[in-house]
Amino acid sequence: MIGFRKFASQEWAGLAAIFVLGSALAAFLSPSFLTEYNIYVMLRSASVELLVAFSQMIVLAIGQMNLAVGALGGLVAVLFGAMLQLLGLPLPLAILIALLIGIVGGFINGLLTTRTGINGFIITLATGSAFTGINLGLTESRPFHGIPVEFVALGDSRWSFVPALLWPPLIVAPLLAIFLYRTKSGRKLLAVGGNMRAAELSGISANAMIIVAHAISGGLAGLAAVLAVSQLGAAQPEIGSTWLLISFAGPIIGGTALAGGYVSILGAMLAVLVIALIENMLVLMKVDPYWVRFALGGLVLVTVGVNRWRAHQMGRN
């Protein structure tokens, strides 16, 4: 019983329950839900979204927002495609450079934020537009198709219902957890988000931590872009253009504090899975895809409302 109460007190417990109940409901409503292939499709679409959610989460951790996650992802995707198709670089090298481009893009965001003292929201709004501009200027909205066949095949491969693309986020998640909860740098980063003044009075350089958070965010956006290219089989300029909502919905539904200082990695993962589940259910039930977006928006509002109510209740006790 104590074990159950401890479980129920976790922010992600509700999401886990929703995921289990939702799956049961979906299986009941549609016989095609519990097929190996359907679950694989669902998890494959969640793979990129998990990394996108992590990318936003790390910036939320310092109490800022990154509006450039999608734009940076798009830019990395087309540059990755160009490296493969135009320059003929070997795949591992191209992936490495793509991740570096992501990190550098995030680093620029962090540097501009700390140097100018302007809120990261505005800085990333501007750099996001700039990244998209470079993307479209270089590609003239044409995708690069010259992606090595084995890399595209990797995007389609699976073991039973587990897509190969799920591995990168599954490896990143514990690394992030170790970084944020076990290393000094990670703790400093969260301390800056939790109480910037206290952190500074304790001798922590807030600026350094803000730059680190943005750089990690950029690297994760880059990794998400590489996965997206593998999944789609082409480096399309539109990659990233739909990431904005999921990037916030994942962490926030998962219990990450908007004000900074607290993240729930497991919560963000479950939230992304719940969203993928809802999308999947609506598709199976042949609901118009436009309404899927409506449902997603409603879900964000409801969960944020519930979290606020919970915080209020806890404050009373």
């Binding site: 969260l190 301390a191 109480n195 504090a257």
Partner: peptide, 14 residues
């Protein structure tokens, strides 16, 4: 000047 979501111990030795 404390970090609210950190433990007591971590705050003391921040």
């Amino acid at each position: 000047n404390l970090v609210p979501r950190f433990s007591v111990g971590e705050n003391i030795l921040l």
